[in-house]
């Protein structure tokens, strides 16, 4: 649990200005890690997306041939309301370098209100995740509709770039 040991309760502004050098993981020892220091393996990101909006939005991006970095692996669920925050934490525990959650825009949920329940959970998770030693830049939740192929491309590209800036995680455990 080397990462957690050095986690900061910093303000959002402090974290933003500190940049990668302040990444709590950089001081992690490698003994508990899955990768040696200096490793530049591609970052691996788990995306958990709802069937109706964001999965279909990623389809739309594909049909439109909107090129994206190849670091994301998508898990399809019926609704973001189905997502237990545990899924994101499990992914980090197993070594994911980033977790992206995406669903329907507020008001557009196929099941009327599933995304509102998701919003509460992930808003909370986003605020507390750095207490677990995971910089909040490694976690993002957002909305992408079925017709927003270009937005999906943008979300993926930006998120991957942010995670790449931090680099692969050097420790697996939370």
């Amino acid at each position: 649990m080397a990462e957690a040991g050095t986690s900061q309760v910093g303000s959002a502004a402090g974290e933003a200005s500190a940049g990668p050098a302040a990444d709590v993981e950089t001081s992690a020892s490698t003994d508990a890690g899955i990768a040696a220091s200096g490793d530049r393996r591609p970052v691996k990101i788990i995306g958990i997306v709802c069937n109706w909006c964001s999965y279909a939005g990623a389809d739309t991006a594909g049909v439109g041939r909107f090129k994206q970095p190849a670091n994301i692996r998508l898990v399809r669920v019926p609704c973001t309301g189905r997502i237990d925050p545990l899924f994101a934490l499990k992914a980090f525990e197993k070594g994911a370098d980033g977790v992206l959650i995406s669903g329907c825009h507020p008001g557009d949920c196929h099941y009327s209100e599933g995304n509102y329940y998701a919003r509460r959970k992930f808003e909370l998770l986003e605020r507390m995740i750095h207490h677990l030693g995971i910089p909040k830049e490694r976690f993002r939740w957002t909305w992408v509709s079925a017709s927003e192929g270009q937005r999906w491309q943008q979300v993926v590209t930006e998120f991957v770039a942010g995670v790449e800036k931090l680099g692969p995680r050097k420790a697996r455990a939370l």
Binding site: A58, D59, A61, G62, V63, K67, A70, L74, Q153
Partner: peptide, 15 residues
Amino acid sequence: NIREHCSWIHTDIPV
């Protein structure tokens, strides 16, 4: 889904 989510959005064959 290895078409919309893979072959159509990437160009590098090994990747």
